[in-house]
Design a protein around this nucleic acid. Structure first.
Lengths: 335, 335
DNA sequence: CTGAAAGCGCTAACAG
DNA sequence: CTGTTAGCGCTTTCAG
């Protein structure tokens, strides 16, 4: 039989479809005998419940969507992998959406997700299309975004991490430190951490903004151009490890001695980058823990009858900020 | 209204549900007037067709599943991103499955995918659970797997790429070249390319197998241990860029001069790794082109009435092998 | 403990 | 050009 249905099973087992459904969902009282008959029939037909028909009836899809700029970025790749693993363990499927940081793409995805009635969404995308969506009924958790009163936002202590990075550079003797960031903004906590520490030390801050959607080659060039034109710069704090790596490569080409003459710190500390550049000093985010928490919060909301209240429960928002660890590497001098 | 249905739209527009459905699908003859009324009603209700109900009826989900070991691996991360982009452009959604190379996980996923009636599957996972699945009715395309007569297998010219890498090392004067691979096997084309070239040059081949599912730290240790114990080795050909990076890092720690005293070539050539290690010599796969082809082949099969015949069409199998390019970098000496 | 019947939201004959 | 009817595969009252 090509696509056996519950009715086919019922026919073979000699019971009603209702009974088969009960066996499937383990609901109500069933005699052992009946169960056995039904199981036997299912085996015989290699029956698989049709998830679509189920969803139509239940109003639950057991699907969660992930919206990230691109999983080719190490941080998002790692995060997506952990999230998928945790969700899969809890019986949820994951739909992947790479927004590429195009608000328009993100909007299309939201439409799609609403159509598909996904139970939940986890987003790390940068356009705020979703969080501000008026009629979103899915549970929603954001990753490393601005705090909202309506949705949990899982993030690391960006401000503290940036302070650690900047302080480490200053302690190691750097005086002309440039911070490379994707997008400047007053609410950018890594930038704020950097600025505050620089100011407290009476050092002149310098920020290089390289844009988010740009190609990596363009970003690399923006960074090397800047460094070429600012020979007094003696240290770089990148808002992610890739920017730090660009700076490091520039130093190598220039035959600058690292860390003696030029120091570098990144941010994120993914396994992938640590494998490739074990010496890079960086601020490590506990990505796996963050993924775990995001899934916890999302599942709780999805399985509650009042998801929006669960999500907006202020009492635990403070738990959603994770501490960072500074990993010294050898691209920063010892103080 | 919380979740407007097609009937609600019909009621407001003063037409039958069928008519609304026709407008939605742009089928049959509709008067302009009717169309306008229906569109107006849809807008008024912010109506979104329920994709689930649609799928139940159509027997098409417009969903494709991606099964890869993990998108945290640069090659799969890049591949997944490109695939998702292309598929999304063609109106397909993507479900992400990270098998972690556990055959058991892969099997679970297959069950799930069958339940969800995905239209197609693209897999680069290593267990052969899917390709050998007897009753798979979805279209299937594999990435860099062994050739089958039943499904397209998109891959690069692994054999030729490995030959280029090995030859480049030999031409540059290397004599004790070790090949680092995940899993040894007779059908491993990168390994075969390496072996053939070594043999033709009367050089003794050495293969280090580091396993697939192992943690990156364990792989790194296996590699450094091997290199520590075999000081005569003067070059490494890694079956991926990460293995090559491990060797490179080892050389740096040992203060070996690269490429003078120690040479390294990797495989894959993803943008992500090129950003971080621009000097690494490697065999570049045309990942974006491969993704494009995979999607083409899959879509063709999904939209055909005889998907299995389309997939097994031998005449174009040869087109599914993509040429590689050797990128010299500076970790190999000039001949 | 089990079954009959209705319906989730949509589409596809078949009429008109 | 438009409406009526049935049904995709499952779950869920409501009866027995």
């Amino acid at each position: 039989m090509v696509n056996p249905t519950l009715e086919d099973v019922a026919a073979i087992a000699g019971v009603s479809p209702t009974t088969v459904s009960r066996v499937l969902n383990n609901r109500g009282y069933l005699s052992e005998k009946t169960k056995q008959k039904v199981f036997a029939a299912m085996q015989e037909l290699d029956y698989r419940p049709n998830a679509i028909a189920r969803s139509l009836q239940n109003k639950k899809t057991k699907i969660v969507a992930l919206i990230f700029p691109t999983v080719a970025h190490p941080f998002y790749g790692a995060m997506a992998t952990y999230l998928e693993e945790r969700l899969s363990d809890r019986g949820y499927r994951v739909i992947l959406c790479n927004s590429q940081d195009h608000p328009e793409r993100e909007r299309d995805y939201i439409d799609m997700l609403l159509s598909h009635h996904v139970d939940g969404v986890i987003t790390g995308a940068h356009s705020d299309a979703i969080a501000n969506y008026p009629t979103l009924r899915s549970a929603l958790v954001t990753i490393d975004r601005e705090q909202s009163q309506r949705y949990p936002n899982i993030r690391c202590d960006n401000y503290g991490g940036a302070r650690k990075a900047t302080s480490a550079l200053i302690d190691a003797g750097a005086r002309h430190i440039v911070h490379i960031t994707s997008t400047q903004s007053d609410t950018n906590q890594r930038q704020r951490g950097y600025l505050d520490v620089m100011q407290k030390n009476n050092l002149e801050p310098r920020i290089l903004e390289v844009g988010f959607a740009a190609e990596s080659a363009a970003k690399n060039r923006a960074i090397t151009d800047y460094l070429d034109q600012h020979p007094e710069v003696d240290a770089v704090f990148g808002s992610n490890d890739t920017y730090a790596a660009y700076a490091l490569n520039w130093a190598q080409v220039q035959e600058k001695k690292v860390p003696q003459d030029f120091q570098v710190v990144g941010f994120d500390g993914t396994q992938a980058i640590h494998s490739l550049l074990p010496h890079l000093a960086t601020v490590v985010q506990p990505i796996e823990d963050m993924a775990e928490r995001a899934v916890e919060r999302l599942v709780e909301a999805m399985e509650s009858s009042t998801p929006h209240e669960v999500m907006a429960d202020e009492s635990r928002l403070e738990n959603d900020v994770f501490p960072t660890v500074f990993r010294p590497g050898t691209t920063v001098r010892l103080p």
